[in-house]
């Protein structure tokens, strides 16, 4: 009888591999996920429109279907933050960089 069909779906944990630039392929379970890598671009607190810029920074995120750059923390590993490029449609991981390098390069290019 239909109403009695209590289907227990198996929501297995995320099963993915992340190519750590230093440590090679690592299981996604070693990482904590943060989100959009734009969090690297913290607004200038001394700018005249700082409050509005911070409001966007804190609350607004893009939600792209396709390539997405996002931050993952290797919490159960070497404690490095990575910028992982992932296709949100297929879950394909297109690359991973050390966030430290990304952030440093960003700062140099701004200067």
């Amino acid at each position: 009888m239909k109403a009695a069909l209590v289907r227990s779906r198996t929501y297995s944990e995320v099963k993915m591999l992340i190519p750590h630039p230093v440590l090679g392929l690592r299981d996604a379970r070693e990482f904590a996920y943060l989100g959009d890598a734009r969090l690297i671009d913290r607004p200038d607190p001394s700018a005249p429109d700082a409050e509005a810029a911070f409001c966007d920074y804190v609350y607004l995120r893009d939600n792209p279907a396709g390539a997405h750059r996002e931050l993952w923390f290797h919490e159960h590993g070497d404690h490095s933050w990575l910028v992982v490029t992932r296709n949100t449609i297929t879950h394909e991981i297109l690359g991973a960089e050390l966030a430290h390098d990304v952030a440093l390069a960003r700062k140099r290019s701004v200067k």
Binding site: A32, L34, L39, I40, R42, L71, F73, E75, H79, S80, W81, L98, A99, H100, V102, A103, L104, K107
Partner: peptide
């Protein structure tokens, strides 16, 4: 985690 984020992602210099 937040301190490491600040160190690596915000102020790597």
């Amino acid at each position: 985690r937040n301190m490491d984020f600040a160190r690596q992602c915000l102020w790597p210099e």
